[in-house]
Amino acid sequence: MSTVLKSSTEEVPAGPRADAAAPKRGLGSRMRKLNVPAGVGGWIWLAIIIIPVYYVVITSLKTQEGYFGQNPLALPTSPTLENYQMVLEADFAQYFMNSTIVTLGAVIPTVLISFMAAFAIVRGKGRFLKLVNGMFLMGLAIPLQATIIPIYLMIIRLNLYDSLLALMLPSIAFAIPLTVLILSNFIRDVPNELFESMRLDGCSEWQTMWRLALPLTRPAIVTVAIYNGLHVWNGFLLPLVLTQSPGLRVLPLALWTFQGEYSVNIPAVLASVVLSTLPILVLYVVGRRQLLSGLTAGFSK
């Protein structure tokens, strides 16, 4: 965690003269004067966010004795990685693999087929395409968690119960409406002349899609891939209902069962929390801007 703090402050050096030097971008001139209540509020909120995170990280580095003996917010006197070792020995590498497989197996098809659909919706005309688009828009308004019982039934009937594929299929379906919406908004921004020139060159729509629309919408594709990826990675209900073997657990489910089994060993439980978040944290450190824009997906467009 300390490396995160360091790298992020390096990236945005918070010098004492920052206030006076900053007004290049955005609301600069307005905010140049010190806004004391805002500053105080900002630091209070920081405390609310950071204290739990800090507690989780330092506790995960404590021994059981340290946990029971020390002040809960004190740094561990003898930091240890044995909790992490214990978590890894509890098959977390396997769960990590499962989560990765499910996330990739859901996100790649989602983005691919949604991109094709979005391209068709933007480029084509006719009642059928309007109908398809309308249906996807409706899908945005429905809390899809509510369909879990029929999904459970279908997955059993398809003989897919307790498999990773069972987690991918509904995840793909749930993600399609928003992905299509966002991608079609971006494809709509591609200048029509470009499409025209492709057509005059004798390209089919299929070729236009891959050679023109795909490269031009790549940023949007990365954005929705991240958004969907986070949702699938952190998803809990589908794995809870559709799998049961320990070997098929994904990380959030593994966390839950782990804390049930090791409820007396809080440092180990919190180590599992840290470990399951680590990959996304790495992503946050290396590509913060991309990740954050992925999180709001199309909402601020």
Binding site: P109, L112, I113, S114, M116, A117, F119, A120, I121, R123, G124, G126, F128, L129, V132, M135, F136, G139, L169, I172, A173, I176, P177, V180, S204, E205, W206, M209
Partner: peptide, 14 residues
């Protein structure tokens, strides 16, 4: 018609 076919995979899953 060609474009409509492109929506078929997404439509199928949905």
């Amino acid at each position: 018609t060609a474009l409509a076919w492109l929506t078929v995979p997404a439509l199928f899953f949905f």
